[in-house]
């Protein structure tokens, strides 16, 4: 059992949820997603974001369009599909249940008795 392993599993579970929620607010360019995640103190490597986006795109959760940029070749801007949107909503529900449950559990004080005893 090592701590990095458990931490990375925790983080990995919410990664897709976070990315979808950023894209849901409006079309996003991958490096903007990274910026936003970092600003929220959620570390992600840009190199792991691309495969994740490609996977989500191949699963028809995301779609993208090319946008001409004023310098050089066009950029890929990602947006949510309908399928992605309902996927996101399910994730959101799960997240709320999870975070409420976990918060309720972890915020209990040590002198509180176990509920079943």
């Amino acid at each position: 059992m090592n701590i990095e392993n458990t931490q990375s599993q925790m983080r990995k579970g919410i990664l897709e949820f976070c990315i979808l929620s950023i894209i849901r607010r409006g079309e996003a360019y991958p490096s903007d997603i990274v910026e936003e995640m970092r600003a929220a103190n959620l570390q992600i490597l840009e190199g792991t974001l691309y495969p994740l986006l490609t996977r989500l795109k191949n699963a028809e959760m995301l779609t993208y369009r090319w946008e001409e940029s004023n310098s050089g070749p066009p950029r890929k801007y990602f947006s949510l599909t309908e399928k992605g949107d309902s996927f996101y909503k399910e994730l959101q529900q799960t997240w709320e249940e999870l975070s409420n449950g976990v918060n309720a559990l972890t915020s209990k004080k040590s002198d509180e008795p176990l509920s079943n005893s």
């Binding site: 990095e4 392993n5 990375s8 599993q9 983080r11 990995k12 190199g47 792991t48």
Partner: peptide, 12 residues
């Protein structure tokens, strides 16, 4: 990110 960093992230 280097390949070994991806690995750490993708352990699960």
């Amino acid at each position: 990110g280097k390949v070994e960093d991806f690995e750490a992230e993708e352990v699960a």
